[in-house]
Design a protein around this nucleic acid. Structure first.
Length: 698
DNA sequence: ATTGCCT
């Protein structure tokens, strides 16, 4: 708690030196916001001007005592924004009317950023997932466009409308298409009736149709993904340009500034008017701002930008309202049974009269092919009449990843939004920003690529004041990478899922509930397309070899998943070239392909699904883009070789030395700053150093 | 080899 107060105290003191903002003024006039907990009621606004001196710990402590007693009430009502014509009446109505957005009270991040954005400051805003960041930048940004005397909204709707394809005043960049569309939907709600025109530009849609729409209707606010934005802004032939652009918004800013996106984002910036000639405000929003992107942030924003941070530095940026559980799986093949068991247990409790919301989960996987196999397997399971008549029978089982056609992606997202209960099998395409209502569970299968990914995925539940649960299923051999990569997180060990620890190489009787689950999953997987299973194996090859303690263990676990879990006879071939690239060798247990034969025959030969039956659709081509192959289609089955006997494979689960400990990983705060993300700028504390006696167990 | 992102 101490660390929190200190941070708050410093920030508050700094804030007092800044010009008094309207929100501060409003704050003192308004009744204090009734916060559900002190955790979220505290907030910090601080200036990060590069010349600002860093305070010593002693100074900070002194300020704490001075500043702590008077906590300002920082949250305001939307209706109060009408004062001084701060925000257009129409916008306020759109927000508060029961038949429209039906919101009343601003969230912290909304109230803390509104004035700064209207003032025109550059901002980096950090707030937890699901706390209304989108609205926080939309409302003042749309207001700023209305405030611009050169923007004429009065004639919109008539033929003589003065808006056009070069009237873009604000640009919002999003890392995924669905998020861009979602922001646009919200923007249109806010802008309704104001005459402001909101347009989108994302990939996977018809470029020409989108351009025609912009040309016909005009555009004040453009929302899009990096590739398409770059495309239309760089191509003079499109007629779409932004010579009057005043606002650039990076949603999920840390993602857009990371290696994968930064070049595109920089190029887009270079296509915008010179900021020394046309004044430009840049806004960055995210729940996570790892230390290593701060340099990029500073380079992109004006030197006097404001850092609004509602996540206290000793706090894990996840909701304390979302309990997080860690499940060790015996093998990689145990994850899907454990997922089914989780759903079943929940629905059983509902059947027994517990007041629980319907099971609505997102299952996250680290590769697209794995999402596909898993979704296909569950859809196969769901075809049985037993399943259909069980308490899981009404679940929607949907899949989304970047390899699907955009039409299917959109359909899955829409269907999952509407679904009362179900599972969305997802890659990281939905990890950030997506707002699916009433998600009760987020299940992450395998350790995610980084801590930010973990946090954002988890943030798909527990939104807008609702409850939710987070689950991480992980192989024992991922333990080290879990600690190193994810750092401090409030996960509690959970051993309630029996199928997570079952030895799937055994035969199970349908008499037990675990046996039934295992048999259902095995059967569902048997019916899946063999080629997709190979792609899943290949896809996981990259992540598991990076996640496991050793490559050898990773290969053994994968091989077992493939043969025991996927019910395949022989292992996918890995070309000598790839093996060399990945630093694998024969000893690791991979099946080395014959490069020349593979080239000659191309792709892979269809090998044996042992248990596959006819009759069912194999999941196969339900519209995946490019036949689900991105670049070199490798991975053949090795011919001949071990004909399905499993004895040749190591059984994974070497668990020597591991102790299961009690379930105590609850949410406690040590004195040290939980803030991490310091992966590059300074040496990380070792895991053990950062844990006191009553700290997180995992 | 692994996510997402203009054709």
């Amino acid at each position: 708690m101490l660390g929190t107060v200190r941070r708050f105290g410093v920030s508050h003191a700094l804030r007092a030196t800044a010009p008094r903002s309207i929100s501060a003024r409003l704050a003192t006039q308004l009744p204090k916001w009734q916060a559900p907990s002190t955790l979220s009621s505290l907030a910090a606004t601080r200036s990060l001007h590069s010349s600002f001196p860093r305070l010593s710990a002693a100074t900070a402590q002194a300020i704490v005592e001075e500043a702590e007693p008077s906590k300002p009430a920082i949250i305001t009502e939307f209706s109060d924004l009408a004062a001084d014509n701060l925000i257009h009446n129409k916008i306020i109505k759109n927000i508060i009317q029961p038949d429209r957005m039906n919101l009343k009270t601003m969230t912290e991040v909304q109230s803390l950023t509104l004035n700064e954005i209207v003032k025109g400051d550059d901002i980096l805003a950090q707030a937890k997932t699901g706390t209304g960041k989108t609205l926080a930048f939309l409302v003042p940004t749309l207001q700023n466009i209305l405030n611009d005397p050169s923007v004429d909204v009065s004639k919109v709707g008539r033929r003589s409308a003065r808006t056009g394809p070069s009237e873009i005043r604000a640009l919002i960049i999003s890392p995924t298409r669905e998020l861009a569309e979602q922001i646009a939907v919200e923007a249109k709600k806010v802008a309704f009736g104001t005459g402001l025109i909101v347009q989108t530009a994302v990939g996977g849609t018809q470029k020409r149709a989108g351009l025609a729409k912009i040309q016909q209707e005009g555009c004040h606010l453009l929302i899009g993904t990096p590739g398409r934005l770059k495309d239309i802004l760089s191509d003079p032939w499109t007629g779409v340009s932004a010579p009057k652009l005043n606002t650039l918004i990076l949603d999920e800013a840390d993602r857009l500034l990371d290696q994968g996106f930064a070049p595109d984002v920089e190029e887009i910036q270079s296509l915008l008017p010179d900021p020394t000639k046309v004044d430009r405000q840049t806004l960055m929003f995210s729940a996570t701002v790892p230390r290593e992107v701060m340099q990029m942030v500073r380079q992109t924003l004006k030197p006097d930008f404001k850092h609004v941070n509602t996540v206290r530095e000793d706090e894990v940026p996840t909701h304390h309202r979302v309990p997080q559980k860690l499940v060790y799986t015996r093998g990689l093949e145990n994850s899907l049974p454990a997922l089914l068991e989780l759903a079943q247990n929940w629905q059983k409790r509902r059947d027994n009269g517990e007041e629980l919301r319907p099971f609505k989960a997102i299952a996250y996987f680290n590769s697209t092919a794995e999402t596909k196999v898993s979704a296909d397997a569950f859809n196969n399971i769901a075809r049985s009449s037993e399943f259909r008549h069980s308490s899981l029978g009404n679940m929607r089982l949907l899949e989304i990843n970047s390899r699907l056609t955009q039409a299917l992606r959109t359909r899955s997202a829409d269907n999952f939004r509407k679904a009362r209960e179900g599972i969305l099998f997802s890659s990281d395409v939905t990890a950030r920003g997506m707002d699916f209502p009433d998600v009760t569970h987020v299940v992450q299968i395998g350790v995610p690529r980084d801590r930010e990914t973990y946090i954002h995925r988890l943030g798909r539940t527990g939104r807008a004041g609702k409850e939710g649960e987070g689950w991480l299923f992980m192989h024992r051999a991922e333990q080290d990478v879990y600690r190193k990569r994810l750092g401090r997180l409030p996960l509690a060990l959970d051993t309630s899922l029996e199928s997570a620890d079952a030895d799937l190489s055994q035969t199970f009787s349908n008499d037990t509930s675990v046996g039934k689950i295992v048999n259902q999953v095995t059967e569902g997987l048997s019916q899946c397309d063999g080629a997709t299973k190979v792609k899943s194996y290949m896809g996981q090859l990259g992540t598991t070899t990076g996640n496991f303690n050793s490559k050898k263990e990773a290969i053994q676990a994968l091989n077992q998943m493939f043969t025991v879990g996927y019910n395949m006879q022989s292992l996918p071939e890995i070309s000598p070239r790839l093996m060399q690239q990945m630093g694998l060798n024969r000893i690791d247990g991979v099946s080395m392909g014959n490069g020349s034969r593979q080239r000659r025959e191309g792709g892979f030969s269809r090998g044996g699904d042992r248990g596959s039956r006819g009759g069912f659709s194999r999941g196969g081509d339900r519209g995946e883009r490019d036949g689900f192959s991105r670049g070199g289609d490798r991975g053949g089955f090795s011919r001949g070789g071990d004909r399905g006997e499993r004895s040749g494979f190591s059984r994974g689960g070497d668990r020597g030395g591991f102790s299961r400990g009690g379930d105590r990983g609850s949410f406690t705060r040590g004195g040290d700053r939980g803030d991490r993300g310091d992966r590059s700028s300074r040496p990380r504390r070792s895991f053990d150093d950062s844990f006191g006696d009553d700290s997180f167990r995992f």
